[in-house]
Design a binder for these strands. Structure first.
Lengths: 107, 107
DNA sequence: TTCTTATATGACTATACAATCATATATGCC
DNA sequence: GGCATATATGATTGTATAGTCATATAAGAA
């Protein structure tokens, strides 16, 4: 299923980037419009717009139009679960590495 | 915590690529040496070696030397959980899109 | 219709990434 | 030491990606 793998990779890529992670974090509280998102994550409007489009195209964000404003939201709860598990990995890695440093310092 | 975001992104990037996903899938059954991995996933030895190094550097694979052979294994169970959740997203997306096509075909 | 605000996009630059080929290094065996 | 096998890496190429700036488009308000 290598074609499936390519869709899988695209979904994961939609989260595997610092700016996009900031967007996902900000959307934990629910739907937000672009004009709220880009100041909150401290990125340019155009850059934010591109990332939002990318994430929507790859199926992890929903998009809703209301007048001039466009509201984006995280579409699948698994997105947060994935970020949380990746965070757990980072945390454990940091712990493991600092333990290793302690062991080395003791000789 | 934007510096944390960058580590997080790196961990997710370690899975967000078709060849690396093939490696993760193959390692579901446990530790394997490079000489078993690259024929199984049908990639060049050198390319496989680079991806394995990348994944180990970013903390998602462990590496063990035994004679000439190097054994790699998935280090954190969360890696599989992440892939499984991403798979669930892809599956749901495919379902949603095919439903949409059905609705459109009915007018 | 004109102005303002919100969002998207074209053109560009710089950087990162994946893959390949050839070669280097390491280990064990004879 | 010389050879075979396993793995890693340098050099290169082509492609993808992130970010920026300027501009286009769309909607609503005056």
């Amino acid at each position: 299923m290598s074609s499936t793998n390519s869709y899988l990779a695209d979904v994961l890529k939609s989260m595997a980037q610092a700016t996009r992670l900031k967007i996902v974090e900000f959307l934990r509280d629910g739907e937000r419009c672009v004009c709220e998102i880009f100041p909150a994550i401290d990125e340019e409007q155009s850059n934010t717009s591109r990332h939002l489009a990318y994430m929507q195209t790859h199926g992890i964000l929903s998009r809703r139009k209301e007048g001039v404003k466009i509201y984006y939201a995280v579409k699948h709860p698994e997105v947060f679960e994935i970020v949380d598990r990746a965070t757990a990995i980072v945390k454990r890695e940091v712990e493991m590495r600092s333990e290793l440093i302690n062991v080395m310092e003791r000789g």
